[in-house]
């Protein structure tokens, strides 16, 4: 409240309150309509369209969702994918940043630059060729053997060149691995490690602790809050990604919940779409990340502001 002695702040504060109320309305409005529609029966929805009055069919619609669609299994997929994305990103970021900060080697800057290059081009921009790589992750090995002429020699000796095949499409690793190829986590952890006093390292060395002991017993506990923030953000990121899981999974059984929800959408056959069912799907798909956001607020704000610095 800047300068309440100097000026009458009531008018300004009233304007601020109105602005915030409008903002809340903009954010909550779609969520409220989703919940209300999810609670209506199809018949009453067809009669009256979107309505401000909740119905009584929420449980019934969710039951229909569980019996007639693949959403429940896809929510499990989302959970596994998001968990893997978050856990691996945290582990990789922690270990990589640790190596780059607590050792003095001449190539650390190059490694860091190579990793930071990834933030310039998001996964959604490179899906066409990422798809090709994931459909055979052994492709670079084949390419290397071909380019070096080793494959020609192998072909001359054994009659056929080496052609390794490892298709990761339609599998959890296939969905998760490309999502890990970004340097933001390393960047966040590196920033954090650099704020730690150098005396910590000196003290550990005087106690005879090697880098591994230092990493596990000192760096890891200190980084716990930051790792938690990173984990939650990456979990949400893994849960909400769309284009890549859509391409990487061809069967409904492997699709994530967000992709499954989009596939519930009407394809335009003239009939009024079953919006109560679709909105019940939106509720089920979004409830876990929403609860995380509402209750783990301080970690999320911390994580978002950390990515800034």
């Amino acid at each position: 409240m800047s300068g309440d002695i100097v000026e009458d702040t009531r008018g300004i504060d009233r304007t601020a309150s109105i602005v915030l109320a409008l903002g809340l309305l903009f954010i909550l409005g779609p969520l409220v309509f989703t919940l209300i529609t999810a609670s209506q029966s199809y018949d009453s929805f067809v009669r009256s369209g979107i309505s401000p009055v909740p119905g009584t069919h929420l449980i019934e619609n969710i039951r229909r969702l569980f019996t007639t669609t693949a959403i429940p299994a896809q929510v499990v997929n989302s959970f596994i994918v998001a968990l893997m994305v978050a856990a691996f990103k945290c582990a990789l970021a922690f270990v990589t940043a640790f190596g780059l900060v607590f050792f003095r080697v001449h190539y650390a800057g190059i490694v860091f630059a190579v990793l930071m290059g990834t933030v310039l081009l998001p996964l959604d921009l490179r899906v066409v060729t990422t798809y090709q790589v994931v459909s055979n992750v052994a492709m670079p090995v084949n390419g290397l053997l071909n380019a070096t002429g080793i494959n020609a020699m192998i072909a001359a000796f054994f009659g056929a060149p080496v052609d390794l095949q490892l298709n990761l499409l339609d599998s959890y690793p296939g969905i998760v691995l490309p999502a890990l190829a970004t340097g933001t986590g390393v960047f966040m952890m590196r920033q954090f490690f650099r704020t730690l006093p150098g005396d910590l390292v000196k003290a550990a060395q005087m106690d005879g602790a090697g880098w591994f002991r230092f990493m596990i017993d000192i760096a890891l506990p200190l980084a716990r809050t930051n790792l938690t923030a990173l984990f939650i953000l990456m979990f949400l990121g893994g849960w909400t990604m769309y284009l890549w899981p859509l391409l990487a999974s061809s069967t409904p059984a492997m699709q994530t919940a967000v992709v499954g929800l989009a596939r519930l959408s009407p394809q335009g056959d003239g009939q009024v779409p079953d919006y109560p069912l679709i909105m019940a799907g939106a509720v089920v798909v979004s409830i876990l990340p929403l609860l995380m956001i509402a209750f783990l607020q301080r970690f999320i704000v911390r994580g978002l502001t950390l990515t800034e610095k």
Binding site: F98, D199, V201
Partner: peptide
């Protein structure tokens, strides 16, 4: 100079998993 651990190649091994993932799923697709 801040104190640091000795080990010429340790940081390389620590970064290797991340480097492999970034090479395979970022630089090769690009």
């Amino acid at each position: 100079m801040p104190p640091s651990f000795a080990g010429r190649w340790t940081p390389f091994w620590l970064s290797l998993p991340m480097l492999l993932i970034v090479a395979l799923f970022f630089y090769i697709p690009v």
